[in-house]
């Protein structure tokens, strides 16, 4: 059995109430150690107030070859953006 520590993906929430954001990965034997390592590797300059660690093996990713079918349909739906609609200036701010 390999003794290489498994890989974890690290997510950090910054100071200003934003979402946790993926910052990178690291190796650790278990979740508890992953949090400790993440503190040392990814928050040496006060970058975060909260850490999530997720085993990399638990992540399911979309496949690059599905890029077209997954994301192209939204290309043609420009009406989803507010700038699609012209509102006369007289109406005021909307």
């Amino acid at each position: 059995m390999s003794n290489e520590w498994p890989l974890w993906e690290i997510f950090i929430r910054g100071q200003h109430g934003l979402n946790h954001r993926h910052v990178g990965s690291l190796h650790a034997p278990d979740a508890e150690m992953a949090v400790k390592h993440a503190r040392d590797v990814y928050t040496r300059r006060n970058e975060g107030v909260s850490i999530w660690v997720v085993p990399s093996a638990s992540i399911t990713a979309s496949s690059p070859s599905d890029k077209g079918p997954l994301f192209e349909p939204s290309n043609s739906k420009v009406y989803r953006h507010p700038t699609f609609f012209d509102i006369p200036e007289d109406v005021g701010k909307m």
Partner: peptide, 25 residues
């Protein structure tokens, strides 16, 4: 603190290399 940064930089880079299918060991 500087030497600790160098360790961190090594770890960021090892992880980047590992995404190409080579293991840390």
């Amino acid at each position: 603190a500087k030497v600790q940064d160098e360790a961190g930089h090594g770890l960021y880079l090892y992880c980047a290399a590992e995404t190409l299918g080579v293991s840390r060991d």
